[in-house]
């Protein structure tokens, strides 16, 4: 049954009239035109759909829109502030940490969540935190380097 939800996305309140069992990912992409979050597997295994809910990285493809109502949602579109890239975004560019780029936004959101709670993670901590994000092009070493770079830039 249609339900009206208020979602707080990137600090803006958005009303949507959708079934509560729809995935947050599909609502973000199809109803709100926030297509920076990607579909990769639909079962929370690849991390391409990662968004922050109350600061925590979650897989939006296995999160229902109903469960996200009223919580603070941050998508990749919300990381850039006043035309300034988030340090993780800048570091991905500088480290050339992408090939096709399809996993990149999910990687960046996951990494941003990590740096928010651990400002200077070591390589092992980065790998442990990022293990749920898949890059089929195989740019993992560059992504690790980018996260180190972002940590330095934030410090």
């Amino acid at each position: 049954m249609p339900n009206v939800f208020e979602l707080i996305i990137n600090s803006t309140k958005r009303k949507v009239d959708v079934d509560s069992d729809r995935s947050l990912l599909s609502v973000l992409r199809d109803d709100l035109d926030l297509t920076g979050s990607k579909y990769g597997c639909g079962e929370g295994q690849c991390g391409a759909c990662t968004v922050l809910i109350d600061g925590k990285a979650i897989r939006s493809c296995i999160t229902t829109v109903g469960s996200a109502a009223g919580k603070r949602i941050t998508t990749i579109e919300g990381l850039e502030q006043h035309g300034r890239l988030h340090p993780v975004q800048q570091a991905f560019i500088d480290a050339d940490a992408m090939q096709c780029g399809y996993c990149t936004t999910g990687m960046i959101v996951s990494a941003a969540a990590l740096l928010a709670k651990n400002s200077d993670p070591n390589t092992e901590e980065i790998i442990r935190h990022m293990e749920g994000n898949v890059c089929r092009c195989g740019t993992y070493p560059r992504i690790v380097a980018a996260i180190h770079k972002a940590a330095k830039a934030k410090a």
């Binding site: 297509t35 920076g36 579109e77 890239l85 975004q89 050339d96 992408m98 780029g101 990149t104 936004t105």
Partner: peptide, 14 residues
């Protein structure tokens, strides 16, 4: 560097 990297890291690339 990748010429359209900024569009990719911001999610703007479609």
């Amino acid at each position: 560097l990748k010429v359209n990297a900024r569009d990719i890291v911001t999610g703007k690339h479609q």
